[in-house]
Every structure is written in C-alpha cells, then in structure tokens.
Design a protein around this nucleic acid. Sequence first.
DNA 1: CTAGGGTTAG
Length: 550
Amino acid sequence: MVTLSRKFSTTAVPNPKLSQPQPQNTTTTQFFIPFSQLQQRKPLESRLVSILDGCTHLTQIKQVHAHILRKGLDQCCYCLTKLIRMLTKLDVPVHSYPRIVFHQVKYPNPFLWTALIRGYAVQGPFLESVVLYNRMRSEGTGPIHAQTILIGGFASDLFVGNTMIDMYVKCGFLECARKVFDEMPMRNVVSWTELIVAYAKSGDMGSAWELFRGLPVKDMVAWTAMVTGYAQNGKPREALECFERMQDAGVKTDEVTLVGVISACALLGATKYGNWVRGVAESYGFGPTENVVVGSALIDMYSKCGIVEDAYNIFEGMKERNVYSYSSMIVGFAMHGRAHAAMQLFHEMLKTEIRPNKRNHYACMVDLLGRAGRLEEALELIETMPIEPHGRWDDVSRLRKLVREKGLKKNPGCSWVESKEGVIHEFYAGDMTHPQYAEIKRALADLLDRLKAKGYQPNLGSVTYDISDDEKKLILMNHSEKLALAYGLLNTESTDAGCTIQIMKNLRICEDCHAFMCSASQVTGREIVVRDNMRFHHFRDGACSCDNFW
DNA sequence: CTAGGGTTAG
C-alpha cells in the first residue's frame, strides 16, 4: 500500500473553459496578462543556456556573455540567470561581476533575483541576501516580474503557468493565481495541487474540495494535500475520511501522507488509529526512528492522547532530532504539568546546535515556569534570553498564518470519544444525530438530577447570547463534551480496563462544563479526562488537576 | 526548473 516513489504523471489536459467564449469585463487585476500573448521558448536562448552550462572557466563564460550581448539578449533573464549561477559556481565574488550583470537588467525576474540571492547566501555577506530577498518580495514585485516572464515568453506554457500560480500564491494574490489557472490553455496535476494547497492554507477547504473534485487524475500528492489540508484546518474527521477514500481509490501512500494522518489523530486523540498508522510507517522503513517528521508528529500525537510515556519513548529512540522534535516533547511535558521534565529538556536542547524558535520558545517556557510557581527561574530565563537580530523571516510565516486565520470561520465546538473497539464518535454542540441520542439525552437528564442534589448549578454566565435562562440551560446541557461524557458512561463500565473516560475537544472547555465534569467524577466515581485545545484536565473525586486554572 | 509534511506562543 505504501511507496516511496516520487514519480508523478505530468500529463497535461486542455482547459475546457477556453473553448467557450471568454466572459468580458471580469475582475481583471492590474498585474495580469492573458495567456494568448504567450510565446514559446526560443531555441537560441535555450542553446546559449546549455552552452553556459558546460563552461568550466571564467574566460569561456565571458565569451558567451559577449555573444549574448551581440545577439541583443542583454535583457534576457533566462540566459543571464544561468550566467550568474555559473559565475557563482566558479567562486567569482557575487558582488563584482554577477552583481553588475544583474544591475544591467531592467526588469529582473524572480529567477534572476534568486540566482543573486543564492550567491550571497553561499558566499556572504549573508545580510545582503536577506536584504535582497525582502526587496524582491516587497510590494507587488513578484507579480510585476511575473509579467516580464510572460511577455518574454522564456518558457513553455505549462511551466510558466504553474510557476506563476506558485508566485501569486506566495505573494498573497490568491485571486490572481486562480485567474491564471482558469486561463491556462493546458494544465496538469501540479497546477491543480498548487491551488488546492493555497486554498487549504487560507482556510478555505470548500474551494479546495471543489477544485479537487474537478481534478481528472488525482495522484498521491493531490490526495495528500487534501488530507493535510483538513488536518491543518482542525477538521481531523474529514482528514481521516479523505485518507480512507484515498486508499479505496487505490492510490499509494507515502510518509508525507501518513504525517498528515498522524496529526489528524493527534487532534482527535485517536490513539488506536494512530498506533495503526505508526505500525504502517514502521513496516515501510520510515518509522519514528528513521524519519524525524514522522517521529515529531508521533510525539505530538501521543502527548495529545494523554500518553506522555510513549511520546518520550519515541523521542528517545529517534536517530535524528530537530527543533520540532524538541518542541513537541517539551510542550508535551508542559501539557501534562511536568514542568521539571520540560525544563530539563529545554536545557538539554540548548546544549545541542538546535536553536530554540526565537521568542516563542522562551515565551512558552516562561509561561510554564510561571504556571508552576517557579517565578525566579522564569525571571532568570528572561534575563539570559539572547535577543535575535533579524526577525524578518519570522514575519513571512506570521503573515501567512494571519491570512489563514482571516479566511477561517470560527469552528463549532466538537468533542470526540474513542469506543472500546477504536471507533471514533463525534459530537457537535446541540448535535442530535448520534444513533444513541435518545439514550444519551436520558442519561444526561439523570446525571443532571444527581449533580443538582450535590449542589451543582448551571453556570448561565457561560452563555453570552441574549436569550432566556431556560434556553441557556438547554444550550449548556447540549455542549459537545457533555454529550460525549454521557456516551462514555453509557458504553463503558467502571470495571473496564482503562476505565477512564477520555474526551477530546477542539475548543477550550467552558466553566460550566468544567464544574459539571468535576461534580460528575465525584457522583459517578469515574475518572474523567478532558483534553481541550490547551491542556489536559484530569477530573477525579470532584477535583480537577488544573486546580481550576486554565 | 513546477505541487503535498511535524510544534508552540498571543
């Protein structure tokens, strides 16, 4: 079922929309140039590039350069990119000859920029490459340069189109990317996947699915994009469903797919499913020991499933560790209130070459120490914290995240419980679709009476809508974690192995549910664990491990 | 030459 093959089918299919008359006066963006103006790659330029590729001495390159100028190709980014790349390969200082070549081009395209930036990144000064990178990405630069590729027509349709989609997406012009996609004469899986990922990253899984549905040949990468898209957008059930449909379709799977599945399991708290995935990964030789990404994902999954020990076993067994592995483990310890272990690991990490993720990491540790009441250590950490000079690279990812969040609608409250058989039961707030709903409702009413006798009062302040108190009580009673609890009580016995009822929730637990769970643990004599999006709550004998602080 | 991957903070 699993393969490591990276071969992809690049069969391009014609765009059916183009045979129909094009609608006039659509929302044209100022940067966009229609594909009809596109020319084919010119043979002369291709030949010059391949000649450059074979150059081994500076004199040869200079000869070809002279030839390029004679042929009037002094503005051809395609040739000059190759020229700069060859120059830097021969250790010619970027700041001399290559930089001059670059400055003679009026409209450098992203490839030319990249050649220069890469040169500085290899030879130094490193700061210069950062400066150039930011300049290239500064307002509108990407799309404007994209025009020059189009007008010059330095590459074939399909490739330019795909690259443009990528560029527009990276510059945050999703609509432009879509427009390119719609007007491309020929398209392949890559074109589709680029856009699907862009929609997924912006939180619009609806559009992603719509596109995916219309994709004629769905390959492994496209499927994986959907699976991880769902996982990244807090829709783990959909992610697993997608994964299963992918297998039904007979599409092969590799470690990237499995990583997406594991992170869905982490969200769901689906231990059994996760274990199975781990087994599959191991049997194909990219288990947690061999593959850092699989390992880190599993660490996160196990700690979010409440099994820190297993998480630590994975961590210990890993051949290679990076920031993700350490972060996941530290956070895993923190989530379970093991401040000491987290602190120790943090210091262990500082001894390696792995650098913490700048301020965030420190913020996390300070928060943890503060929570554990170790204020002196927290202060010491703040004082010894090295201040990193360039936060610009950080900005990029923060910006993308912002975009993603902006497009994201607020997720409805949702809880999951795993049955004895490993089946995941999902409950939404006010959800009446569960087959056992009638029983659940009765059990909840029953429980409510017993809790009231012990002094529990519904906390009406947890509902902020402007409605009557009775309606508020009804809403509270139908919170997803209460439904899940009732399901758990109905379907497990206190004598069952691991008789704890473990509930996973996508949002923060509300005050009313918290009090309800406390009281319920006392009345039923059962241990209840609720993991919300922040931490674990262990309810036992009427008290919670978080000390009512969450 | 082009497409899919793991953590956290607020």
